[in-house]
């Protein structure tokens, strides 16, 4: 029983664009950027279904490390988890990755990468999605 909490193939498939690439929504009425997408603007309450590609950049709002992993995630433990404030505004929960020896703090600048979130056992599908890492030193 080494399964993800939510393991339905169609459930993951439905979310592929947001999971792989942080595709959220923008409210056509008040321009609020929405992630995760929720179709109704949390700010003005109007219909908001226009897709919006987030830049993937943000900063750590809070962080911790999971040592006692739920089944389905134990092969990856311990793993760091953060709430990230995206530069467009929304908060999002995700794992951090490629930390190396760098200390993570609230305020650390991070960028989105697409990584393996888990596998539905030895034979099931592989699940990919967003994680965040400290911004790669350029050039």
């Amino acid at each position: 029983m080494n399964r993800l909490a939510s393991m339905e193939t169609s459930q993951h498939w439905r979310l592929r664009q947001q999971r792989y690439a942080l595709v959220g929504e923008v409210c056509p009425h008040c321009t609020t950027k929405i992630f995760p997408p929720r179709d109704i603007c949390p700010d003005c309450g109007e219909d908001a279904r226009d897709l919006y590609q987030f830049s993937g950049r943000g900063e750590v709002y809070s962080h911790t490390t999971v040592y006692q992993a739920p089944s389905g995630h134990s092969s990856n433990a311990p793993y760091p988890v953060a709430i990230v404030r995206l530069e467009e505004g929304p908060l999002v929960t995700a794992q951090l990755t490629d930390i190396g020896d760098q200390p993570v703090e609230i305020g650390t600048q991070v960028e989105m990468v697409t990584r393996k979130l888990g596998a539905d056992g030895e034979r099931g599908m592989l699940v990919y999605g967003y994680k965040f890492r400290p911004i790669l030193a350029e050039r």
């Binding site: 092969s75 990755t97 990468v113 697409t114 990584r115 393996k116 979130l117 592989l126 990919y128 994680k131």
Partner: peptide
């Protein structure tokens, strides 16, 4: 790393 493969 553990969360990397040819796809990622």
């Amino acid at each position: 790393g553990l969360d990397e493969d040819v796809i990622t």
